[in-house]
Design a protein around this nucleic acid. Structure first.
Lengths: 144, 144
DNA sequence: TCAATAGTTCAACATATTTTGAACTAAGGA
DNA sequence: TCCTTAGTTCAAAATATGTTGAACTATTGA
């Protein structure tokens, strides 16, 4: 069991059926880096919207409490199902909140602290601090 | 034209048809204060989710830039239609972000700065500061 | 080379959020 | 008393978001 490949970027061939090779095969983008927004493309409203979700807020809290430790997707399995987690982690990456690096068969997730701090000073810290008093990992499921 | 009465609290009589007197008449709650969450009921995830919307973020930015000035709902008409604004202002109030006071036929909206600051230190300031560089009032419509 | 592992994608469904206009109410002023 | 003003409510439609399982792929290790 594992999770966290995340959605490949939409090299759309025909709407709704992305990443298909001419042969009809899917094309995964494991070896290339996943799309991350540039710092100036990170939108405040989007960051807030993405963090306005129990699951994602808990994930970010967990990342903050373990900053510096390499986190692979599998470590988040308590937060949801494999598929669902893949979805949430993609949201976090696409919003510019996390960075995802490829490392062998797994991926390493980290907070984009520097980018967030310089773009929205104090925001991440105030959120992470406020989130400390919140349900974490084990208590997440039944609370929400 | 005007806006901002906000949804009356659900003194539910039968689901989906709230605030009906036995006579079948609607009951508005103009003269009583509208329901606001207690400080300890303000949820971080909810605050973020509610602010993760262009319109509401712009409203809060506007309130922050005019703190101390009494703001009636009508002043926000540039942010949306009467009905729609009523909806967004209710969301802000229900999340504990704003306070709504009755004053004659209109209502005065203000930020719950003290409550937010003590519950989530630094959060409001970092958001408002970050929002300063964002589209405001006039530019809001075409941007989003 | 082959199996196992890690994670993604798709499609379908479920649910929640936004947006509208028409109908409405409550207070205040003429 | 009646009109105007300010704002709410409802119901319906449009849209967006979150959740699932089955099918899939890429890399690694045996």
């Amino acid at each position: 069991m594992s999770i966290c490949f995340e959605r490949a970027p939409a090299i759309v061939v025909s709407a709704g059926r992305a990443n298909l090779e001419p042969t009809g095969q899917r094309r995964y983008l494991r070896t290339m880096s996943l799309p991350h927004p540039n710092p100036d493309q990170i939108s405040l409203a989007n960051v807030l919207a993405v963090l306005g979700d129990q699951t994602r807020l808990a994930i970010v809290g967990y990342l903050a409490r373990n900053e510096g430790v390499a986190m692979s997707c599998g470590q988040f399995l308590d937060f949801g199902s494999k598929t669902n987690l893949s979805y949430h982690l993609a949201k976090l990456r696409e919003a510019g909140i996390t960075r995802t690096e490829v490392s062998g068969t797994s991926r390493l997730i980290s907070l984009r602290r520097d980018d967030l701090d310089s773009r929205f000073p104090g925001l991440l810290d105030s959120i992470v601090t406020a989130a400390r008093g919140l349900p974490q990992l084990e208590r997440l499921r039944e609370d929400s």
